[in-house]
Amino acid sequence: MRNFKIGILVIVMALLVSACDSGESTSGGSTLESLQEKGVVKVGFANEKPYAYEEDGELKGGAVAIATAVFENLGIEEVDGHLSDFGQLIPGLGAGKFDVITAGMAITPDRCDSVDFGEPEMQYGEGLIVATGNPENLHSYADIAANPDITVAVMSGATEKDFMIREGVDEKQIMMVPDIPASFAAVASGRAHATTGTEMTIKMALESADQNKLEFVNDFAQPDIEGVPSFGAAAFRIDDDELREAYNAELKKLKESGEIAELIEPYGFTEEMNVVDPALTTESICNGENY
């Protein structure tokens, strides 16, 4: 009898896991239906201005504005936003901490193996910050690769590490740090010669920090490699198809109406530089077809 009860328990647990993996809630409905019923969606945002940040107790940013508009149009009135370290977003999604993650996260082939991305929402390039006066005369990743004595601080989980390695920078030259303030501190203290990240993120972070020891390299040469420019999107658990497709449908409406440009403009984004070509698809980016 005891073995029979254990067998029943194993079967029940397997069914519960199967429901979660297929995008279904344990109550029998889909993830989308469950969120609509509750009226709340848990969204993980990377703490990166201008994509997502807290100001006067309120979450703001381009990624926040897009997610809020999409979910409101899906009948989900409240976005329960949680700021997180960038490197913790995908693990948090997989662990069920979030229903969705979004922060202008770049769609990359590697990440496409871990999550299902929605369609691209915005595009952006890379930026470089150095000590005031740019004493090492750094204007590109190639300049960093050419000088093995240069050390660059990079936020954990960011794509810039891979970009630099592909541009010839030795991995030993790269110092991983938890966040942008830590990368600034590394350069200001002399522990690193430069830091790199998403152009708008580090530029606005520097303006907010008012660092007189650091400067933004205005003539930074964008690397001519796959992944640049980057295309940011929301990400969903693998096989959570109904929620992702519903999100994409509302996102498409925002693109076609031009509303997406209006949503992100208050945060420093421009239609010319940051709005994605409507013909570009996540599938093509995951497959590397657009580079």
Rank of each mutant, 00 (worst) to 15 (best):
R2A: 10
N3G: 04
N3M: 06
K5R: 11
K5N: 04
G7D: 09
G7L: 15
G7T: 07
I8K: 08
L9T: 12
L9K: 08
L9H: 04
L9Y: 10
L9N: 08
L9C: 12
L9F: 15
V10D: 11
V10Q: 11
V10L: 13
I11C: 11
I11E: 03
I11Q: 03
I11K: 02
I11M: 13
I11N: 04
V12Y: 01
M13V: 13
A14I: 03
A14T: 01
A14Q: 02
A14C: 07
A14D: 01
A14G: 15
L15Q: 03
L16E: 02
L16K: 02
V17Y: 01
V17P: 00
V17Q: 02
S18K: 06
S18M: 11
A19L: 10
C20F: 14
C20W: 14
C20R: 12
C20D: 13
C20S: 11
D21T: 15
D21M: 15
S22H: 13
S22M: 08
S22I: 03
S22D: 10
G23R: 02
G23A: 02
E24P: 00
E24I: 07
E24K: 06
E24G: 01
S25C: 07
S25P: 00
S25I: 01
T26K: 06
T26R: 12
T26I: 15
T26P: 01
T26C: 09
S27T: 15
S27H: 06
S27N: 14
G28R: 00
G29D: 11
G29V: 13
G29Y: 07
S30A: 10
S30N: 05
S30M: 08
S30I: 09
T31D: 13
T31L: 08
T31S: 07
T31P: 00
T31M: 10
E33D: 13
S34T: 15
S34N: 09
S34A: 14
S34Q: 12
S34K: 08
S34V: 11
S34C: 05
S34G: 09
L35N: 04
L35R: 10
Q36Y: 07
E37H: 12
K38W: 05
K38H: 11
K38S: 15
G39L: 00
G39I: 01
G39K: 00
G39H: 00
G39D: 02
V40H: 06
V40I: 15
V40F: 08
V40G: 08
V41T: 06
V41L: 05
V43N: 05
V43W: 04
V43K: 04
G44F: 07
G44M: 06
G44E: 12
